[in-house]
Design a binder for these strands. Structure first.
Lengths: 200, 200, 200, 200
DNA sequence: AATGAATGAGGTTTCATTCAT
DNA sequence: CATGAATGAAACCTCATTCAT
């Protein structure tokens, strides 16, 4: 089907990506064959290689997408005033969103991807991502300290850096135990701990 | 009458396990071949199948070992009196221990294993492990609340359940960023947050 | 009534052939993909199949073209009188011509083609070609013997048959070593050997 | 069949090499699949990769073997005295030997190999081989000139360099036309031309 | 006539496991 | 018990050809 519209191509690309995410989440990266992805996306093996360079590229792209998704919230936060409100909204966001299957798949794929590339020298990739997330939070915490909403002795930088790994721990737990309920309860308690650390 | 002594066999088993841990940590489970393990352990591919059923069994056993190691500390804690002291000692333990390479390898392997078995119905495995860890901490927190060391409104059960995933998050971070220093700094701040949550 | 002129079509055909020759020469027949040819000729994969039946057909046609080119010289020789002069002119032709890249490419493709079809029953193709070349030279040598320019004991038929393989050997050498200088020096010495064999 | 004797392994290696030569000669390098070689040698595809790194390595090794074979004659020549005798013996050798199928296969494979590697920068490989062959002949021709057997004006170096390409041309012809008779007749005439060039 | 996405057979290579020695 | 050659299924990826647009 040549001379096909840009839209068609974009849809096909997306269909393959979705299928890949699904497969990776279900069977893991290594256990997933390109044939699996082809079948799941309703195309042929060959077509996948028209749209993507390799199975690994699919893995990479899926991870990038996931990371970008995290930053969607940044814009929402800008409109709020008050650091506490922002932190609260952040947790609200975490608590509300994770219901759909697709999101769940993305988490699984993301962690597997990290483990996957933790071998080999992809240090930079990790560090950049961490830095981005840290700065994102730092702005909020700094604001809170300056306005006096938060305690003066908050270790702004250290805390901003710690925040995300702790969150990752909770998400990892979700991946393993697959209990939505337990996950939300954990987020709430984590929220409480964070506030108790920040608020005077 | 066996040709070789029990002791010899046990040592060989251990050598293979160690080699497997090393290889898995370095290259990942999938990238590691049985040949790699054979070479690293100084035996032959065939011998590995005398001592172990499959490559996957090695993976399973390695993970169990790692879990056991965590509970070594339990005995140490019993001798201390005071819940705060125990919590402090726990963090002391985390801060002191993780220096050797072998330990580091085990962490890498463990996370990969979890991701690996998060597909398929190994729910029970995870849940049992979580339960065990939770109970371990619950005893300490409960004690603290009862003696009045900790605040009355501490959510004992929820906190005990949350504690480990958060710790896992920090360890996962270590796996990716490989900075001992950053790791320790995170542990210290986490320690502080925990105390601020628990102490009146 | 055709949509495009004959001339346009002929030019397009030629462009594809040229591109194919270029690609085959650079990467070899097997390593060249139809996509390569499409890109090099500035058309699409699909178009190539409008003008040619298959990738293999391009290979065949290219070889035929090369053979034809060899016979261009025949007309030039007719105008000369004296067998020695003709032989000398032949060598002059070889010595002068092979400078352009395209010619070089054609040689490479030609040899690869021969090897390629030396499997399978294309005996006839070879034999016909050889016969044609042999006869071409035979006429000259015969003339020389008859006029007394050449020795009487020259084995006309055998020599005419041998002449071309020897020349092929030199050209093959050029293909491998790619030294224009060495190639010319060889041609000159071969010329000398030929004359010493033919002249009294 | 482990702990297998060195002899067994050597035989197996050789069997695979022979099978590969056979297949390459029959169908060409590209048309030959590893499965073909496996079947022809009576093993499995996997086994081939125990003994050889890749299909291409088989190709390389086969070519090296062929080159070595050429130099077997060197020792025979040493025992003869007189440059003319040596040259004659050389041609005797060419005329006598090429009867068996295996030899024929080797020729086919060798030419295909050369074409194959003429793309890519394997210049050195060619040059080294040419140098070796040239020097081999140079010694003989030099001797002849010094003893006065050969003409004084023989261009020793140029001739020695030219000799082999011309021979290659004849062998190439054999590959295409597969006529033993025609091949021998060509060798004889070439012999004559060589002598007429060398002898006073 | 022109395009280039689609196809799927087929290529090379890897590797967990077995088993004869 | 120890070995490592043998196996063959299966993985990823390529590409000549077709055909809907």
């Amino acid at each position: 089907m040549p001379r096909v519209s840009e839209k068609y191509k974009e849809e096909k690309r997306q269909a393959i990506l979705d299928a890949a995410a699904q497969c990776f989440a279900e069977k893991g990266y290594n256990e997933t064959t390109v044939d699996d992805i082809a079948k799941a996306s309703g195309t042929s093996k060959g077509s996948i290689y028209i749209y993507f360079k390799s199975k690994e590229e699919l893995f990479h792209l899926l991870n990038e997408k996931r990371t970008e998704k995290y930053f969607e919230i940044k814009d929402q936060l800008k409109q709020l005033d008050g650091a506490t409100k922002k932190v609260n909204h952040l947790f609200q966001y975490f608590l509300s969103g994770k219901t759909d299957e697709e999101d769940f798949n993305q988490i699984a794929v993301q962690f597997e991807f990290w483990i996957y590339i933790s071998k080999g020298d992809h240090q930079k990739l990790f560090d950049e991502r961490a830095e981005r997330f840290t700065r994102f939070l730092e702005e909020i915490i700094e604001e809170g300290v300056e306005t006096g909403e938060f305690r003066e002795d908050v270790q702004v930088s250290e805390f901003s850096r710690l925040f995300w790994p702790l969150l990752d721990g909770i998400v990892l737990h979700l991946l393993f135990h697959k209990s939505e309920e337990s996950h939300k309860s954990m987020l709430q308690l984590y929220h409480q701990m964070v506030l108790r650390y920040l608020l005077p």
